[in-house]
Amino acid sequence: MSVKHLNQQDLAERWDLSERTLERWRSIGWGPCFLKIGGRVVYRLEDIEAYERLHMRESTSEPAHPASVGGVA
């Protein structure tokens, strides 16, 4: 089984965010789970997709999922 990983730049491009935003999110415990190996940060594609599913909304009035307040539970 092959696991696909995205680096910080890949994820920033996917979500149209700055890399600095992802760095800040990691420091405060927000965003998808990540791996840090030898100083290199990568995100598993399955964790990114799980985070995206958790944050799906049909309306702006829909309340946030409780686990989404501080990241993936």
Rank of each mutant, 00 (worst) to 15 (best):
S2A: 07
V3I: 15
V3C: 06
V3P: 02
K4R: 06
K4D: 03
N7S: 14
Q9A: 13
D10R: 06
L11A: 12
E13S: 10
W15I: 03
D16A: 05
D16S: 11
S18P: 03
S18V: 04
S18F: 08
E19Y: 05
E23V: 11
E23Q: 14
R24V: 12
W25Y: 11
R26V: 03
R26D: 03
I28V: 13
P32G: 13
F34Q: 01
K36T: 13
I37N: 12
G38S: 07
G38A: 07
G39K: 04
G39C: 07
R40Y: 05
R40I: 14
V41M: 08
V41G: 09
V42Q: 03
V42L: 06
Y43W: 04
R44L: 07
R44Q: 14
R44D: 02
R44N: 07
L45I: 12
E46W: 05
I48V: 15
E49Y: 05
E49Q: 10
A50T: 10
A50F: 03
Y51R: 10
E52W: 05
L54V: 07
H55R: 15
S59C: 09
S59P: 04
S59A: 13
T60C: 07
T60M: 08
T60D: 09
H65A: 10
H65W: 05
P66H: 10
P66Y: 10
P66M: 09
A67G: 12
S68C: 10
V69F: 06
V69L: 12
V72P: 05
A73D: 04
